[in-house]
Design a protein around this nucleic acid. Structure first.
Lengths: 206, 206
DNA sequence: TCGATACGAAACGGTAGCGTATCGAAAGGG
DNA sequence: CCCTTTCGATACGCTACCGTTTCGTATCGA
């Protein structure tokens, strides 16, 4: 199956084609945007390919030419939505870098519609294919996010716990998501500082 | 819809009946238990009335005689759900109590609450009251859980961080849910120990 | 121009599950 | 004993929608 990290499924039988009529990238965007909108409005299970086709003004064939099934489409849409790169670590210390990173992460998560998070959440429970796709994306982002700040901190001679990166990846998204989804709270500056100063830093410094 | 606080729908056209064959309360329980089991196994959308009937050994008619639709059934099941009581703190130290508490919490979340969360997100669009009900139920346990162990630890003279209870309530459910849903991992003994020793204890002891 | 591919429109088979209806039998109360 | 209601079994109509297929048309690269 075409994973989300591959982007839209390659033309033809799997490999990109140079001949023939090229794909319309405008339709790519229309499909993903319609998917996100409907996902937020109605949830994963209620999301129908026909509705996506109708909303995006595209024939169903055009969708199935790109994505093998609903799970792949939704995963691609989620990835399309959160296509941001974490901030580069500045020159400052670990705390400043963590503040920036957590702030960015909180913004990424909180900015999503709560309905979208819930839809993905519920969809992962009901559709193993979607769960697999989503976890692939999450793992990739996780790695990309935690590569820099801790390595740099070590390079500066700061004291960092041995498994700081793993611990960060395990804690930060969990606490943020839990706050947004379950508790229904906001992710303001105070919360970011609380998360960094009261939870992350004490643990990551050992 | 019949809200969960109304309990099973009254007999006949809405008012309780004294004449005729009485309802079988054993079937009431069987229905709700089957609903809860299927809810945690497959999620809200996958939950079919036919599956509930089959699992509970009851005819579909018997379900629809009690609940007008799926949302009402799920709400009633969530309300019925045994609000499991956390384990009493033993005589041992804080670590042992935390291990027991986190183990119980992990089991509780993995076996029950994830399904309820899925139902929450699936149902909140079609029925806001159901969503509110779910949030209330989910919070109920998290609060009731953090009362005992830290107070006792302080009583024994153990060193405990000032806001240990709040920190615990913020961290433990978040990390567990994140592991179950996002990472897709199991909550075995190793994970419980990791959560207690590597995350909770260092923070809660200050 | 030609070949290959993308696109839209529409129809199709198949699956699934909801909620209803019907029927006979069982089980309680007055 | 009779009336009322519950319960099981089953069939049913209905809706939804997935994923596929077909065919005619549009649009690109070579």
């Amino acid at each position: 199956m075409a994973s989300a990290s591959d982007g839209p499924r390659a033309a033809g039988a799997g490999r990109p084609s140079t001949v023939g009529r090229p794909r319309d990238t405008g339709r790519d965007r229309a499909i993903l945007r319609a998917t996100l909108a409907l996902l937020t409005e109605t949830g994963y299970e209620q999301l129908s390919m026909e509705a996506v086709a109708s909303r995006s003004g595209v024939a169903k064939t055009t969708i199935y030419r790109r994505y093998p099934d609903k799970a792949a489409l939704v995963a691609a849409a989620a990835e399309y939505r959160s296509a941001g790169t974490p901030p580069e670590p500045a020159a400052a210390g670990l705390r400043e870098n963590l503040l920036a990173l957590v702030g960015w992460l909180a913004h990424q998560i909180a900015e999503q519609e709560v309905g979208l998070l819930g839809a993905l959440f519920a969809g992962m429970r009901s559709d193993p294919r979607l769960a697999e796709e989503m976890r692939r994306i999450l793992r990739r982002d996780e790695v990309a996010m935690t590569e820099h700040p801790f390595g740099e901190a070590v390079g500066r001679g700061e004291q960092v716990a041995p498994h700081a990166a793993e611990l960060f990846a395990e804690l930060a998204p969990a606490v943020i998501v839990h706050r947004v989804v379950v508790a229904g709270g906001r992710c303001d500056e105070r919360f970011v500082e609380h998360l960094v100063d009261d939870i992350l830093l004490p643990l990551l410094r050992g």
